[in-house]
Design a protein around this nucleic acid. Sequence first.
DNA 1: CTGTTAGCGCGTTCAT
DNA 2: ATGAACGCGCTAACAG
Lengths: 341, 341
Amino acid sequence: MKVTIRDVARLAGVSAMTVSRVINGQPRVSDEARRRVEAAVAELGYIPNGLARGLIRRQTKMIGLIVPDIANPFFTLVVRGAEDVAWRAGYRVILGNTQTDLERERAHLEDMLAFQVDGVLIAPVSDRSAPQLRALGRNQVPFVLIDRSIAGFHGDLVQGDSVAGARVLVEHLIGLGHRQIAMITEPDDVSTARDRLRGYREALEAAEIEPRTDFIAEASAIRPRMARDAALRLLDLPKPPTAIFALNNIAASGVAEAARERHLAIPADLGLVCFDDIELASRLDPFLTVLAQPAETFGTIGMQLLLDRVAGRVSERGRTVVLPGELVARASAASPAFRPA
Amino acid sequence: MKVTIRDVARLAGVSAMTVSRVINGQPRVSDEARRRVEAAVAELGYIPNGLARGLIRRQTKMIGLIVPDIANPFFTLVVRGAEDVAWRAGYRVILGNTQTDLERERAHLEDMLAFQVDGVLIAPVSDRSAPQLRALGRNQVPFVLIDRSIAGFHGDLVQGDSVAGARVLVEHLIGLGHRQIAMITEPDDVSTARDRLRGYREALEAAEIEPRTDFIAEASAIRPRMARDAALRLLDLPKPPTAIFALNNIAASGVAEAARERHLAIPADLGLVCFDDIELASRLDPFLTVLAQPAETFGTIGMQLLLDRVAGRVSERGRTVVLPGELVARASAASPAFRPA
DNA sequence: CTGTTAGCGCGTTCAT
DNA sequence: ATGAACGCGCTAACAG
């Protein structure tokens, strides 16, 4: 059987209460009793039952962390940053990966509520996550949004500046001489997709480039395969683009794949830019022109805001932190090649 | 306040027991009562308290998952695979990232024990993890090792064939004409490092190439910076290697960085191979020659073995699954360039 | 079919 | 300084 506080008490020849006091570092215990309890704890390898503790203390020191795609290096860094901050503060993290599936997100949220997490840090699937997030509020569980905002939401939020970032990327392409610029995006109930599309449009408009509706291709932010298919559709157009702006790095990898299949060289035949650097790839070979975002910082700041709330040390209604991105110009975007009409 | 089973009972006009029966799908409840309970549950947004449940049921449907480096795309896929299998089986995952820190691993294990996880899937830091893993056994919590084995351990294990894989990689380099081949490894209390070093040595010996001790550089499997430093030491040798075998992709990225700093082109001036593909990078630009391992499968199989044990449907003492790797020859390794002595 | 009693392991409250 | 009684929210075992 598992060893309980009573077993320790028996072995130490004291009551359970004294053991409880010792393991919780409370003062009113004789040195003698303390010694014997500590010895008993060590001998039995006693570990206090977190469930029982959580039940009575009404806090578990557990934080729920939900991301749409753990395999995306952006979120992977978010997770690392968040886990690290939580760890230092004495909190542990329960991870939920949604694969952008709304139902899966709902179930994860419910499980986390069931296990009485003290707070939730979440990059929501989309605006449609709103109803299930309200369940958190109803149960008085504080939460903070990262990366994606939700229309009409007014809580804490850590995000990048997608509109400005997209504009910078597209202006960069325009500056290189591109005028036929397509975009690969995802459904517009995701705030980042919405914002990046807007930035793309603004940049075109500012340069007085006529927008082409057939240059907007919808794909997925987690499935490179869909991005590849979307890119192929663009490249097979009668008048194909000379450059593509992919909404994130996963989509960009799909574009690169499509380009290879059509024997188009990047950047000679096709310019390519996207959001979010891929650290490992860039270190291996600095190639992709990106709008780099401080991914790990999304996680650390997000977790800090959350822990503030959990500790009840915050009164303001909704704090928004916007993390600046940075254009990293590399080889994947260059002047468009001459291509016969 | 939080809504409890009693609140539901009151609203539905029944006892708590009846509510319990309904939410657990037990049979002996009248349709009438069931309907009213379900209505009350919906109205109150009742979510059963998992802590209380776990306390009495003696199982939490929670699995602990511990990896050394969540930011490594190999482990990121392991996590995704494992989480996915757990999810389908109705289990949730608590994630622990150790950053190869033994103490952090110990603390994670203790926390997971405290919260009564039903099992633990772990890629241990090193052989030194052994004592803290015994704590799992003491508490009758089943566990499965992934990726790394531990000297003297005899439980379930899912691993790659590091010896053979390393041999294949180094033989590949030799086949291309390289004879001055260095290796970047990590401390040899990690089984994969040990095995890969052994494979490296075997390949050299089979080719009758004299091993050079100054060609073994110790670095880290999680810090590209250390791999870079190690690579610089190798490249600055009076008689530098013409090719480097990095024990994993992170280390390889550090090597590439070092090569750039010394203005050495890969593969023209320096051949580079390593373990573990980087999916995203390879899709973007198939460049690195790797020994690809089915990372996600490490996670799925590992979780399956674990859930077998958790369900108590397994009797064998220790099952070992060895997942085959595959050489993916790409551009980063080629015939050594002519270099003046 | 339904409700009552008891207790999972711990910590709070109040005695002693 | 220490312990006894009670309850956190839920369900197993037993009544009825």
